[in-house]
Amino acid sequence: MDVSGHADPYFIAKIDDRISFTSTILSNTATPKWNDEKWIVRNIPLNAKLTVKIYDKDDSKILDNYIGGFEILDLINYYAPVKGHQIIDSFNRHHGFFHLSIQSMESSEETIHLPRYTFDGPCRYSRHDSFAVGRLTMLNADCIYSTWKIQSSTNDIWQSPLSLASQNALKLAHKVLYGRTLKYNENGQLNNANDLWKCIFSDRTTKRIKPCIYTYVVDDNTWRFSETDVQVFADFASKHALLANASEYVRYAGQFHPRPKYGWDNCDDEWELVFDNGYGTYAPDINLLINLKDLLLFNFPGLHIVTYEYDDPKLKESMAALKHATEKYKNSTTTIQQFVLTCPWTP
Rank of each mutant, 00 (worst) to 15 (best):
S4N: 10
P9I: 10
F11I: 01
A13G: 13
D17Q: 15
I19D: 03
I19F: 01
T22E: 13
S23C: 06
S23D: 08
I25N: 02
N28P: 02
T29K: 06
A30T: 04
T31I: 07
T31P: 00
P32I: 03
K38T: 15
K38I: 10
I40M: 05
P45R: 05
N47M: 03
I54T: 11
D56K: 07
D58W: 03
N65K: 14
F70E: 07
E71Q: 15
I76Y: 08
N77Q: 02
Y78T: 05
K83I: 04
G84P: 05
G84M: 04
I87K: 01
L100T: 08
Q103C: 04
R116G: 08
F119Y: 15
D120S: 15
D120C: 11
G121D: 09
C123G: 00
R124F: 12
R124W: 10
R124S: 10
A132Y: 02
V133Q: 11
G134F: 09
R135G: 11
L136Q: 15
M138G: 05
L139K: 08
C143N: 12
Y145T: 14
Y145C: 01
S146K: 13
W148Q: 07
A165T: 09
N168P: 00
K171I: 03
L177W: 05
Y178P: 00
R180N: 14
R180F: 07
N187W: 14
Q189G: 03
C199L: 15
S202H: 04
R204H: 12
T206M: 04
K207P: 00
I209E: 06
C212D: 10
C212P: 01
V217I: 14
V218E: 07
F225N: 01
F225C: 06
F225M: 08
T228F: 08
D229I: 08
V230R: 10
V230W: 06
Q231M: 13
Q231W: 10
A234V: 00
F236M: 14
F236Q: 12
L242D: 05
A244V: 07
A246H: 03
Y249H: 06
P258V: 02
P260A: 01
W264I: 08
N266L: 08
C267N: 08
C267H: 07
D268F: 08
V274G: 00
V274K: 01
F275R: 02
D276P: 00
G280E: 10
A283H: 12
A283G: 07
P284K: 12
D285E: 09
K293R: 15
D294W: 04
L297V: 11
L297H: 13
P301C: 06
T307A: 11
Y308D: 00
E309P: 06
P313D: 12
P313R: 00
L315S: 04
K316F: 12
E317Y: 03
E317T: 09
A320T: 15
T326G: 07
T326H: 08
T334Q: 09
Q337V: 13
